[in-house]
Design a protein around this nucleic acid. Structure first.
Length: 127
DNA sequence: GTTCTAACA
DNA sequence: TGTTAGTA
């Protein structure tokens, strides 16, 4: 039963109006967490799009990646007693061809992300 | 045809 | 940020 539909890069570009470069960049900056699947391609959910939209809004408003990250913190790091799992959600797994289980299918990717979380060499980078 | 990463302009 | 290279 595939109720929700996954969104591909192309769709994401159209829906957000952002370039693929920007979307991938925001992904690297941990501003969005799209799932990965077939061929290591990103699969966004409706939530990711909304998140991207908000990011775009903040960036175009003259804010930097840092600011955006402050506003949209990763759920795991948001230890305020209030969880905002706004993306562990409507993901259509039936359409995803994963080699193993989703959460830990990409160990290398997970390791990379964890590594990035430690490196705090951020500056005032904008458009 | 499209996305992915990495790197250069 | 755009764009290109080589790949899947």
């Amino acid at each position: 039963m595939k109720a929700k539909k996954n969104i591909t890069m192309k769709e994401a570009k159209e829906k957000t109006g952002l370039s693929s470069r920007q979307i991938r960049y925001y992904d690297q900056q941990d501003l969005v967490f799209p799932g990965r699947s077939r061929g290591n391609q990103r699969l966004f959910s409706e939530n990711d799009i909304e998140r991207l939209l908000k990011i775009k809004d903040l960036i175009t408003a003259g804010n930097s990646i840092e600011t955006v990250r402050s506003k949209l913190r990763a759920p795991e790091t948001q230890t305020n007693g209030q969880y905002e799992f706004d993306y562990e959600n409507e993901f259509d797994y039936s359409d995803v061809k994963l080699d193993s289980l989703f959460p830990v299918s990409n160990r290398s990717e997970l390791i990379k992300r964890l590594s990035r979380s430690n490196s705090k060499g951020f500056k005032e980078e904008e458009e």
